[in-house]
Design a protein around this nucleic acid. Structure first.
Lengths: 158, 158
DNA sequence: GCCACTTCATTGGTCTCGCCAACGTTGGTC
DNA sequence: GACCAACGTTGGCGAGACCAATGAAGTGGC
């Protein structure tokens, strides 16, 4: 029997390894199912931010969604090409573009909402509802902690 | 104040998003600090498997560590170039290479062990010891569940 | 009013990681 | 001897997270 899949002990107990495994699986689900819906992760993030916070500049979108400025450009190009989003110059600040979701964009987003909900369900399948709560709580704590510790831009709000 | 980093609600509560955020941060820590030690993730995985299970073929290494065959080749090339590992043909099966860790490889591995331990510490900083236990437990459950559901190779061990 | 600093959108890279297809070689089975 | 499975290797892909540089445009201090 050559097919022994048991990983080294050093890895089995390491949070970074576990997180990575789960993330890889989650990523697999997201890319597969979003691809079936003609989308990818960045698209959902941007559409979600636009739908919740209203039209905004690209830089703002990037900040909210954790997507790099340059990647925002590319993702918005793709979204605009599919008429899910519109770029228009900001009259009050000519450096900026104001990005708006089109009605089709909103439709697409709510479809993706459904897809994503199913992904959560499948991902957390082995966990009971209170366990899922707990997992969310723990992960949120970690995220918040490290977000606060990462300036990365606009460190001193003047 | 334009620097509003609050993410969309749809994302904040989604396990897949949280996992991804934590994984991204974890990945950042790993690549940065391993790079400082002249290594990367794959190297550690392979060295760990070799140290724990003894010399083995490349295919076996890949299975244990979740690294694709083709990526095992590349990573082993890098390790071999640094004399951390040795490739020798298996006399009993001429298709196989037998990979062995050198003493330098073991040294390097124990150094990386330290680096990785510190990463776990930093990553889980906001969590109490029992909370870390719980996180590990929950993540392990998810990993085990999905591993079992993924044949991916050698489905029927004959 | 001018100059320095910052922000913005955009271009064009890099790197890791996960994965897939194909090839030639070798082993094991029928 | 024919077939199929496993092995190592090469070469490629796409997603995601980055980084550096550029030109245009706003902002503050003096």
């Amino acid at each position: 029997m050559t097919g022994d899949r048991t990983p080294p002990m050093r890895l089995k107990g390491a949070p970074s390894w576990l997180i990575n495994q789960v993330s890889a699986h989650s990523h697999r689900l997201v890319t597969e199912r979003f691809a079936a819906a003609d989308a990818r992760g960045y698209h959902y993030r941007l559409l979600a931010a636009l739908a919740e916070f209203g039209p905004g500049s690209q830089a703002e979108l990037g900040r909210r969604t954790g997507v790099d400025r340059s990647d925002v450009v590319a993702a918005l190009n793709e979204l605009a090409e599919k008429k899910l989003v519109e770029r228009s110059p900001d009259p009050t600040d000519r450096r900026r573009n104001i990005i708006t979701v089109t009605p089709e964009g909103r439709d697409h987003l709510s479809h993706l909402d459904g897809v994503l909900a199913q992904i959560q369900e499948d991902l957390c399948a082995p966990l009971s509802p209170p366990e899922r709560e707990e997992l969310i709580r723990l992960l949120t704590r970690i995220v918040d902690h490290h977000v606060r510790a990462r300036p990365s831009e606009s460190p001193g709000a003047k």
